[in-house]
Design a protein around this nucleic acid. Structure first.
Lengths: 110, 110
DNA sequence: GCCATTGTTCAGCAAAATTTGAACTAAGAA
DNA sequence: TTCTTAGTTCAAATTTTGCTGAACAATGGC
């Protein structure tokens, strides 16, 4: 379970991670609700979500915490703001102004 | 020579366009120098640059103007700021704070 | 122990992105 | 006209992404 150090967070990776509609939806939800259980973020199939969570985590955008059998995900706001001031906020604002992303047809793994 | 209307500029496309180191270098140079001749932006081979210019243009990040045999490229700051406030500035600032991107080995098409 | 829940990991695949080199177009100078 | 400059476009090759389904691991309840 990799979490890059704050100083290792790289801009191209962060932007690439944010450029996917599914991941933007996740980010947006996390920005609204704060730390969330993975289960709540059902924007795709289970294994596909796991893939997107890994992308976000490895880019340094989210932090994952394990508690019992559940995972909790949250934004690394402080780390991101310190390294790239204003970036996360502007993306979240942009995503909110943007026509609703990927919630028309939630593809639940079941 | 496509230039999307301001209202057609889409967040995922913009972020994807910005997530490439070569294109970040171009953006950075444009932010420093303002409108520039394509020729000055030699961060890759000619045909590869043409590809990156098209990506930036189609994402709505840059505008290309033809004058004689030369092309002039500039940032669509106003359009981007109107649609996604603060985004471009934070990316440019982040790119500047970031260790120098792709200038170690300029690959000139000649 | 068995079972359900929660999520990861893997192999495989299709689609998209990136890069290269060659051919091409257009404008201007000689 | 011929040549050079500036840049696009195309086909082909490679790499990277995104997605799926199946198998797997770990926790907690019965």
């Amino acid at each position: 379970m990799l979490h890059p150090d704050p100083g290792q967070i790289e801009l191209p990776l962060v932007l690439a991670a944010l450029s996917d509609p599914t991941r933007l939806s996740i980010i947006r939800q996390l920005a609204e609700d704060g730390e969330s259980m993975c289960r709540r973020l059902d924007f795709a199939s289970k294994s596909n979500l796991s893939y997107h969570f890994a992308k976000l985590r490895e880019a340094g955008i989210t932090r994952t915490r394990i508690e019992g059998t559940a995972r909790y995900i949250s934004l690394r706001r402080d780390d991101l703001d310190a390294r790239f001031p204003g970036l996360l906020d502007s993306v979240i604002t942009a995503a909110a102004a943007y026509p609703r992303i990927m919630e028309a047809e939630p593809v639940n793994g079941k």
